[in-house]
Design a binder for these strands. Structure first.
Lengths: 156, 156
DNA sequence: ATGAGTGCAAAGGCTTTGCATTAGG
DNA sequence: CCTAATGCAAAGCCTTTGCACTCAT
């Protein structure tokens, strides 16, 4: 367990992840090409959202423009999500229904972002409270984003 | 009450806000100039984070470069905070110790951002849980950001 | 007078797009 | 074959910076 990736669901199996990604791409009339597989695999390997430079390095031989274009396609297909944390670069991660719901530890000093899972009961309480709040505000709530901002171990 | 701004603390009084802003600017060796006052007042009037274009319009006659530069100064002084919501423009708001802790309703359709206050007990529970989590992760927690993402009343 | 602040214009840097080439079905 | 995908280079767009002018102390 401790050596396994923290993610559950489909993502614990690379083959299943590929199947799911291909399926979602097909649903919007897109193919699961080798570049897109490289990107998805790199994101699956990481335990935190990756920036474009990180993705280019992790995938090895993908053109920058292709990375941007494919991430956009994967985003439309519901396979990846863009994360913005602060003002630096955009970061990308697999969607939560592939990796499980999680939040981010954002280091205000070095900008590093790490995934973190909040206890289920806390999430449940929060979801309940936010649902009430959204209803009161006439807002159709889809999901929430919770970032913990502070200083990471390395920077302190 | 219903016709007043929802913010409490120092911000309920423009004079107090100015005094506080001037004081914080002075603390970092900066002046409270007319342009900075225009920016602060515009942010105080709004009940949501403002983008640069919105700020330029709200302030009337401030050069774009001055807006960026002054917002940067005000950010360093701890008077304003930059908010990034999604991938669009950067938005700015007064810091939470001036306006009170709040969160954001982010419309995924039109990009609008509106401030919202979560019930105190929910915040308290959340703070407690996050503190435990941060400690376990060796992360020095400073604050949290919670966005409610969905579709606003106007877009649904 | 003297340094900070301002505004215009130019430069930067991440991201997007045009276009010819390549590859997958 | 034929359309989609790729990669290089050029263009876009928000943001930052250089520089001369103005204002406040």
């Amino acid at each position: 367990m401790s050596t396994r990736h923290r993610h559950g669901k489909a993502a614990h199996d690379v083959a299943a992840l590929h199947t799911e990604a291909a399926s979602r791409l097909a649903a919007v009339g897109q193919r699961f090409t080798s570049n897109r597989r490289l990107l998805v695999d790199a994101l699956a390997r990481a335990d935190h959202p990756l920036s474009i430079p990180e993705l280019l390095e992790a995938t090895g031989d993908v053109a920058q423009s292709s990375a941007y274009r494919n991430l956009s396609v994967l985003e439309r297909a519901g396979v990846v999500a863009k994360v913005v944390t602060n003002d630096e670069w955009a970061r990308y991660e697999l969607t939560e229904d592939l990796t499980g719901h999680h939040h981010h530890l954002v280091c205000g000093s070095c900008g590093a972002v790490r995934d973190v899972v909040v206890p289920g009961d806390v999430e449940a309480d929060l979801d309940r409270a936010l649902a009430v709040l959204a209803k009161r505000e006439g807002f159709e709530l889809q999901h929430h984003r919770l970032d913990l901002v502070g200083v990471c171990k390395k920077c302190s």
